[in-house]
Design a protein around this nucleic acid. Sequence first.
RNA 1: GGCGCCAUAGCCAAGCGGUAAGGCAGAGGUCUGCAAAACCUUUACGCCCCGGUUCAAAUCCGGGUGGCGCCUCCA
Length: 471
Amino acid sequence: MQFYNTLSGKKDEFIPIEEGKVRMYACGPTVYNFFHVGNARCFVVFDMLRRYLEYRGYEVKFVQNFTDIDDKVIKKANEEGLTYSEIAKRYIDEYFVDAKGLGVRPATVHPLATDNIDMILHIVKTLVEKGYAYPSNGDVYFRTRKYKDYGKLSGMLIEDLESGARIDVSEQKEDPLDFALWKAAKPGEPAWESPWGMGRPGWHIECSAMVMRYLGETIDIHCGGQDLIFPHHENEIAQSQCCTGMQFCHYWLHNGYINIDNHKMSKSAGNFFTVREIAEKYGYLPIRHFILSSHYRSPINFSKDIIEQSKAALERIFNCVDTLNFFVNNAPEERVRENEGELIAKFDSAKSKMIEAMDDDFNTGEGIAAIYDLVKDINTAVNSNPAPSKGAMIHAKALLDEMTELFGFVRDKDDNDDFIREIEEAIEKRKKAKKAKNYAEADRIRSELLERGVVLLDTPTGTQYRINAQK
RNA sequence: GGCGCCAUAGCCAAGCGGUAAGGCAGAGGUCUGCAAAACCUUUACGCCCCGGUUCAAAUCCGGGUGGCGCCUCCA
C-alpha cells in the first residue's frame, strides 16, 4: 500500500511503526457552527482512509480533536450570552449528527483542547526550558528560526516567508516569524493558570499536545486539509520535534478543497453550504458519494447538480442491493449450475480491482467504479436465462455488501414492520388478482401502494417492492 | 513577489508510456397483461495549444494559454 506523503513530496510505501498497527491523527473542527460541505471532505476522506486501513487488517487508533477554545468560539459565545463550553458542546453534538449521517464513524478518541491544558503547558514549559520558546508579557512565543527544519513540510523557506511580509508583526515578538504557543488572558475571556499568568493555548499547540497524549511522541499518519499545511502543520512539527527530539510523524496526508464556481468554499468567503442544509434536501449519502467519487487530493467543484448526479448514481447501487437481496431470498434452492466458475471469477475481479485501486494512494474513484462493475455483473446475472444458482448470488451478495460497507454506502434500515407486513399482504392479494386475470384489481392495488410511496417491480423471480425514502 | 496545483465527452470523473474505466443526463431496446422511477446496449478517430523524446505519449520533456490554491482564521 502506498500513498502520497506531503513530507516527502511523493508516493511512499506505507510501513507502520509497529507492525499491524496504525496511529493516526486528524485535525478536527473548531466547534462554533455547523460544518459545511468543504469541511465534510476531510471527515469523509479520512474516515475512508481509516476504514480501508482496517479493511486491510490494520488495527487503527484514530484521534480527532475538537478545538473548543479559540477566538471564534469566544466570539460566538459572547454573541449569544453563553459560555464557550456551552457553544462547544452544542456544535460537538451537531457534529456527531452530521457525521453519522455521512457515514463518518466516531474516532477512537475525540479529545477536547480544554481537557488537555496540562499537556499543553507541559510542552510549552519544556520548549521554554530548552530555549525554543520565550515568554513575553504573559504570551509565550516559539522561536521559529531556532528550528532549522522549519518549512520542510510546506516547502516554504524562511527567507521567502520574510519577503512575503504578510506575517503578523507584533511588539511582543522577537521576530515576526515567531508564533504564539500561549496567549495572555484578555479581560472577560476564559483563562487557565500558567507559570506566565492566566491565559489560554494558541491554536497550533493543542494538536501537538493531543497527539502526544493519545498517540505518543511519534505517529504514523497525520492528516488534514491542504490549507493546514502552512502554518498549522508546519508549526506542529516544529513544536513537537523541538520538545521531544523525535520525529513527529512519518506520513502527512492532505485533502484538496471543495470549490464553488472554482473558488474555495470557506466560511470567511461566505460561499458555503452547510452539510445540514444539503442533507435535508438530498440526503447525506449523496454528499459522501460526491466526495469519494474523485481523488482526495484533487480540487472538486460543488453544485446542486452534482449532488443530484451522485444521488442518482447511488440509487443504482441501492437498486442492485435490493434486487440481489430479493433474488437470494426468493430463488429456489437448486443444484449448483455447471460452469459458474467464470461468473464467480468475474464477481471476484471487481474486488481485486477495488483493492488494487485503493492500495495506490486511495483511488476511491476507481474503487467506486469497481462497485459499479460488480453491480452490472450482478444485474446481468440476475436477469439472465437460465437464472444463476442461488449459491453464486449469495457469493455476489457477500462481495457487494463488503464493498458498499467499506465505502459507507449503506442506507439506514426502516424497521417499520407493520407497514412491511401490509405491503406484503397487498402484493399477495395482487398476485392472486393477476392469476385470475383481474388486471383492474391488480392495477388498483399497485397504484394504491404507489400513492403510499411503494413502487412494485415484477421480476421473473416474483414481485419486488421498494419503499421510496423521501429524505 | 515566493511556493505549489489543475486542464480528459453535455455534466462529474479514472487513467501515471502500449492504443480512452465508471457514474449522471441523452438515444435505442428488454422484461411485462399493461407498466415501472427496474434492467441491457449505446454515446470522445480523441484527452487546452505548439514543439520535442520514443517503435509507441492523455500519459515524459520544453514553451505557451486558461483556471485555482497557500504564504492571514480556514478542512
